[in-house]
Design a protein around this nucleic acid. Sequence first.
DNA 1: CCAATTATTGGACGATCGTCCAACTATGTC
DNA 2: GACATAGTTGGACGATCGTCCAATAATTGG
Lengths: 190, 190
Amino acid sequence: MNLGNKGEKTRAEIISCAKQLFYQRGYEATSFSDIVDATGLYRGNIYHYFKTKDDILQAVIAQHLVEFRALLSEWDSRHADPKSSLLAFVDMITGRRQDLVEYGCPVGTLNAELGKDRRDLQLAARALFDLFRDWLRMRFLELGKADAADALALHLLGRAQGIAMIAHVYQDTALLQREIQQLDAWIGQL
Amino acid sequence: MNLGNKGEKTRAEIISCAKQLFYQRGYEATSFSDIVDATGLYRGNIYHYFKTKDDILQAVIAQHLVEFRALLSEWDSRHADPKSSLLAFVDMITGRRQDLVEYGCPVGTLNAELGKDRRDLQLAARALFDLFRDWLRMRFLELGKADAADALALHLLGRAQGIAMIAHVYQDTALLQREIQQLDAWIGQL
DNA sequence: CCAATTATTGGACGATCGTCCAACTATGTC
DNA sequence: GACATAGTTGGACGATCGTCCAATAATTGG
């Protein structure tokens, strides 16, 4: 039997290139030829790994999930108390401020684009929100916010999305930093 | 000389149809043929009024500006104190909750889409944000928030955008209402 | 080393995209 | 009522889109 080691590498390369392109240009705006050019592979070869462009997006979403899950468990191992964890979440925004200002939030912009006319794909992309939503809810639960944990999680997600969007629209990192400080303060006084 | 009354009507009809399509499906996802079908006009006739699809978007943005300006001046005439005005802004979100949940915020989603790979057009769409930003800043100024008026305006815009985005992603009007109540409370305690 | 599976090459496919234009009709001016 | 302008008809254009596939090369298990 073939172990497919070589193939897995090519497959990962396709996903990696597509992930970046979908983020920076958007999903629909990225053509199959763009992926061909970015990977340096032949059209047919890519279709050997993915039957459709939609399938590539599904794989990209799955890859995002893997990476974000790794990030969350890293935070879990690094922070004992829930407030530090929440601050780590907010700190991620600061750390990625350059990309956020230039291309927006990868989770938010993807969901926004797909939500218009590809609701089937948006349901897959929503899993990225769910990942953070569930993780945040746990932290609020640990903070004793039993009956409002999910609402607080969604509130924080919304705050973060709003900040990322405005900062992206105005290409303004200072605005982002200022708003993030307010989020930090909000977490502190919980 | 021709007064062009007939033409103005056709022109307005094109803008109206395109405005709805761009909002509900997104700009790139809306093809020229979609506009042709929606208006019932012939391709060439539309090109008699607009040289490119980008020109149609510019006209749609201009139309949005006209309508939002009318809305703002209506609020100005209806509300004497700044807090009532701010509440009117928030109340607009509640009033449009159905469309917001289904298609997202027309201003936010348009800017998000164009911000990825059409930054030239996004600059035009940004004017929609500027319109609200400036109006909100005036209200915060009237509230005595001299040195933070613009930051508060952007903060409120961001909050609204975040709420609209999360509500859209999860198709959840209850979430939207809940978050809007918090915005109301925030305005009340300013 | 052979047979089978996996991977790559390279191009072709129909459909749809945004744009353009020549011919034709309606409208308003002098 | 002739003339210019504005508006409409209807189709064609090249470019690009996502998808498909037969032929060839590489890799692997028996």
